[in-house]
């Protein structure tokens, strides 16, 4: 058994908070640059230039890319040959979030009671634990902004549904987000599993590189359809409504076909480390 002290996890989480919020993901920045080249709407192009400039200001001056520093979501892959010692794992993660958010001057956007609301805090994070082979711990922090989270959708399709209907549902989810959730978007789609699991898949899909080299056929078809919506950067109209569509699938039941859509704004932020 390899022993990893809880404190080491706390420090790692803290550092990831700053990294995720100050440094825009390279794959996203790359797609933004391509979008800038592609876009022909003058105002939209000017906006994309501002988005790229914003990423540089954030990185250089250590100031959050977006004021909505999100609801912190933490994905943990723990090797089964690891033992966490000298502390409680979940406590270490949440303390790491608080340290990280405080140190990096990020925003306290979390209310403990969703109905009573009340004073907002830095956490707690939503923590997803996964047990894997090996003796390492992989930590990913994904601060999800809520302007785009509010546009999430779930539909429980019949198993006999046509692929065209599924595509229509996904495209319509983006259409209904319109200009509100900071386009150009990155669209995460989860297909299969259960209602709740498809939502998790859609979120995990956003963690995959955007428009990676091996774009699947369905992903590229959806990307084209969404870009024909003419929502455009900032909703100003134009060629680039979406930077990429990522789909995750999972086995599901013979009686159903859950599909979840999780939209991300152009400021898709996440950071990963391995201990």
């Amino acid at each position: 058994m390899r022993e990893i002290p809880a404190d080491k996890i706390r420090v790692a989480v803290s550092n990831l908070c700053a990294k995720a919020n100050f440094s825009l993901r390279k794959d996203v920045l790359q797609q933004l640059r391509l979008a800038y080249k592609k876009e022909t709407n003058k105002k939209a192009k000017k906006f994309l230039a501002a988005v790229i400039a914003n990423a540089f200001v954030a990185e250089k001056e250590k100031i959050a890319i977006c004021q909505d520093t999100g609801l912190p979501i933490v994905f943990l892959e723990i090797g089964q040959d690891v033992r966490i010692v000298r502390g409680d794992l979940k406590q270490a993660i949440n303390k790491g979030i608080e340290d990280g958010y405080r140190k990096a001057y990020l925003r306290n956007s979390i209310v403990l009671d969703p109905l009573a609301r009340g004073v907002s805090k830095f956490g707690p994070a939503i923590i997803h634990l996964d047990l894997v082979k090996g003796k390492k711990i992989k930590i990913t922090i994904f601060p999800k902004g809520f302007g785009c989270e509010n546009k999430s959708q779930l539909k429980m399709f019949k198993p006999t549904v046509s692929i065209e209907e599924i595509k229509k549902f996904i495209v319509e989810a983006v259409r209904s987000a319109g200009a509100d959730a900071c386009p150009p978007y990155i669209v995460g789609v989860g297909i299969g599993g259960t209602a709740d699991y498809s939502g998790l898949l859609a979120k995990k899909a956003l963690l995959k590189p955007v428009a990676g080299i091996k774009i699947r056929k369905l992903e590229s078809e959806l990307l084209k359809m969404i870009n024909r919506l003419n929502i455009g950067p900032m909703g100003l109209g134009g060629k680039v409504t979406c930077l990429g569509v990522n789909i995750e699938t999972a086995p599901t039941h013979i009686a159903g076909l859950p599909v979840s859509v999780n939209i991300s704004c152009h400021a898709l932020r996440s950071a990963t480390t391995e201990l």
């Binding site: 100031i63 959050a64 004021q67 909505d68 001057y105 925003r107 509010n150």
Partner: peptide, 19 residues
């Protein structure tokens, strides 16, 4: 707008618009 906290020596933190 609900800005992020002002870092030391700065007037304000990140301060873009909300929906």
């Amino acid at each position: 707008c609900g800005p992020s906290m002002a870092p030391k020596g700065k007037i304000i933190g990140s301060c873009g618009p909300t929906t």
